[in-house]
Design a protein around this nucleic acid. Structure first.
Lengths: 213, 213
DNA sequence: ATGATTAGTTGATTGAAATCAACTGATGAA
DNA sequence: TTCATCAGTTGATTTCAATCAACTAATCAT
């Protein structure tokens, strides 16, 4: 089923609707790093299975062997694990347009240590390892996309990691406001703090300081 | 040119020697994540160009557009960048069996912000983006290898990053002794400190404390 | 071999964020 | 609506690693 989703400057943009989901976000993401053709998209989309995850629920939990790699169409999720001391370590927040899969575990058929929890009601497209392989065979642009995406992610993670380990709480928080302002609005402060590796009290004080300028 | 490199339990192990280099390390690495066939290796190896980098010298520097992705056969290198404040941020140490390429930059034909410096005299196999593409076409096992490798690396980086941001200096150092004892022996202390995001004085004190047990 | 530079140790002091604690405000369930 | 739980603020105190400083040990260049 095909529907007009948006119009840009008089050009009609078509996209596929899976049970009411805005799948064009996936196409946009593919086209960011490849020349994926819009006409191939409907067929490509059939490789995915739609999911809805209610606020607070999990897409996978530690101990699971994830069967699907999720792409987030709507909502915001947090990926975290529980360390030796028993506290939650937030690895990242995944918003619209993010993949949040445990690819290594899927490949190795091993249990993940991660939890993927919806912080809002979420809409997700999940792809199995098998369908991903089919997609890589059938759509060269998807292969291209993944290759570039891996490299980009690799760089992004290394950059973020270096900052998290060396920057002060204040510059970490200010930076997050700059780079991902939506997170500040939609994610509870104590999760932001856990992600930055600082205390929620510290964020309170930074906020007061900023406001008093 | 083919030569006996080592013998294990009476089985002869053959490998290709490029101007005296122990290329079997690359084959071992490939076979860790794929079923790369030993008989395909000589042909595969032709995609690589051998390099030697003397202690203190660089394989690439910030501003370069790297032409080759290095695989380290011998030696130890540090990858770092210089941040806004002007100090060196060590991203990782690459020993034998590591790749240390700037793949995103090669793909995008953009300048890297990284330095890759030899901490010892190093022997390297470099592969160009072009030859990597050829390799991916010609050797399915190489494709498999890279896919798995990406996933494994992704997990490793995220794990390390989370620890670097939350663990205490002492547990970071003790952990490094456990996970990469060779680094402690071959890498100067102040580089270890920079990598862990702590001070060399702090490591001194941790060492004293450990010794006094 | 020798002096010079760099690496690492040890002690004293400081400081920034964690911790502890008490509170207010928001959210949610019955 | 009301109570209970959870989220966030503010202040007082503590703590651990950074900083500063002075030294010893190791490495390097000539």
């Amino acid at each position: 089923m095909s529907t007009i989703i948006e119009t840009f400057g008089g050009t009609f943009v078509f996209a596929i609707i899976v049970s009411g989901m805005a799948t064009h976000i996936l196409l946009q993401e593919l086209q960011k790093y490849s020349d994926f053709k819009e006409e191939d998209f409907p067929e490509f989309l059939e490789l995915f299975k739609p999911f809805k995850v209610a606020k607070g629920d999990y897409f996978y939990r530690a101990g699971d062997i994830p069967k699907y790699s999720p792409f987030i169409l709507k909502g915001c999720m947090r990926k975290f694990f529980i360390n030796e001391e028993g506290d939650e370590q937030i690895v990242y927040f995944a918003e619209e347009g993010w993949f949040a899969g445990e690819v290594q575990c899927m490949r190795m058929n091993s249990a993940t240590e991660m939890y993927l929890q919806a912080l809002e009601d979420c809409e997700i497209l999940g792809i199995s390892l098998n369908n991903a392989e089919i997609g890589l065979q059938s759509f060269p642009a998807y292969r291209k996309f993944l290759d570039v995406r891996y490299a980009v992610d690799h760089n992004r993670i290394i950059n973020e990691a270096t900052r998290l380990k060396t920057d002060t709480p204040e510059s970490l928080y200010l930076r997050l406001i700059q780079t991902r302002p939506s997170l500040i609005l939609r994610v509870p402060q104590h999760y932001i703090a856990a992600y930055l590796g600082i205390r929620t009290e510290t964020i309170s004080r930074i906020r007061r300081k900023i406001a008093g300028k």
